[in-house]
Structures are given as C-alpha cells and as structure tokens.
C-alpha cells in the first residue's frame, strides 16, 4: 500500500547545489495563504524525509521560512517560523552531533550557544518572542544558518567538508544509476 500518496513532497536540494549558498529574502507584507501552503508542503517533505527541521531554501524557495518538529515525547507538534531573528544568545555553548537533509548521512559535532532568544511570525502571522534551549536552540540556529547560505559542514575543516560533499555526490550518482 503506497502510504505516502496523500502528502505533497518536494525535492530537497543537496550539496553542492549552489542555491544552498543563497541568502534568503524576508517575507514582505505578512504571512499569506501562499506562504502557508509552502509551509504545509515543507512540513510533509520534512516528515517524509524524515527530518526535524527544514528551511525553504532547501526546497529551492529563497524565503526566510522554516518548519520544525522536534517530536519530543515521540509526539508530533510542528512549529513554523517566518522571518525569524535571534535577538540574544547566552555565552555558554554546547556541542551537538548535527545532520542535515541537504547533506544526507553526514553527521558531525557543532558547538553553538546553548540558549537563544527568538523573534518570528508563526503560521498565523502572529509575532512570537521566546527563548529556545536544548535541541530547539540547536535546530533553530542550524536552520537559520540556511537562511544566510551557511551549512553546518561550513564549520568543519576544509578537508572534512570536501569529503562530505564528495560522499553526498557519490551517493546521489549511485541512487540515480539504481533508478535507471
């Protein structure tokens, strides 16, 4: 039984796609139904992948939009971010083994501020200000890097980064060959 039939699943860009280096543009004039449709489809795409966060540029849309679901307590509870900003971070940093749907099957430890204060518009266009900590802080900082064209592998040594890109390219070639 094809269980994914009902979902709107978009293609996720992978490295070294140059669009992943683009700086995303602010959403002007508030959150519209078109933005919500994009967020719905991004959410489906993220769950199907599966992943816990996705920035619009990862599906080729150059807008400052992010969807996320940390699935805490093994329960789905999605979050949506339009024009997110980090207002403040604390000095303490924490390492976390990050991964990325645009750099599949590569994981490495990245050090980031342990807490950050966010401001964003939610799915309904309401302004929210809140502190993020734990996995939430890790994930939102990772996703917001995407909006600046930065990937987590950009924090690694040049050698490690090149190896990661080569590995993704090779895996993609293999799966394309399999499909034919």
């Amino acid at each position: 039984m094809p269980i994914l039939q009902a979902m709107a699943i978009l293609d996720i860009l992978t490295v070294p796609d140059p669009r992943l280096k683009d700086v995303s543009l602010p959403v002007e004039g508030g959150v519209t139904d078109a933005h919500r449709k994009l967020m719905d489809d991004m959410l489906d795409t993220m769950y199907a992948a599966p992943g816990i966060g996705l920035a619009a540029i990862q599906v080729g849309v150059r807008l400052r939009i992010i969807v996320m679901d940390l699935m805490e307590n093994d329960e789905k509870n999605p979050r949506f971010f339009v024009n997110p900003e980090i207002l403040e971070t604390i000095e303490e940093t924490k390492p976390y083994e990050e991964g990325c749907l645009s750099v599949p099957d590569i994981f490495d430890e990245i050090e980031r501020p342990a807490r950050c204060k966010l401001r964003y518009l939610d799915y309904n266009g309401n302004a929210v200000e809140e502190w993020a900590e734990g996995l939430y802080a890790v994930c939102i900082q990772h996703e917001m890097d995407h909006l600046e064209g930065t990937l987590f592998i950009d924090y690694l040594s040049r050698l490690k980064r090149q190896r990661a890109v080569d590995k993704v390219k090779k895996a993609k070639r293999l799966s394309a060959a399999e499909a034919n």
Partner: peptide, 9 residues
C-alpha cells in the same frame, strides 16, 4: 494514515 501530520486520505 501516512507519514505526515494528519495528511492522509
């Protein structure tokens, strides 16, 4: 049910 959040037929 599918893998999405209450997205199934």
């Amino acid at each position: 049910m599918d893998a999405g959040l209450d997205t199934g037929d």
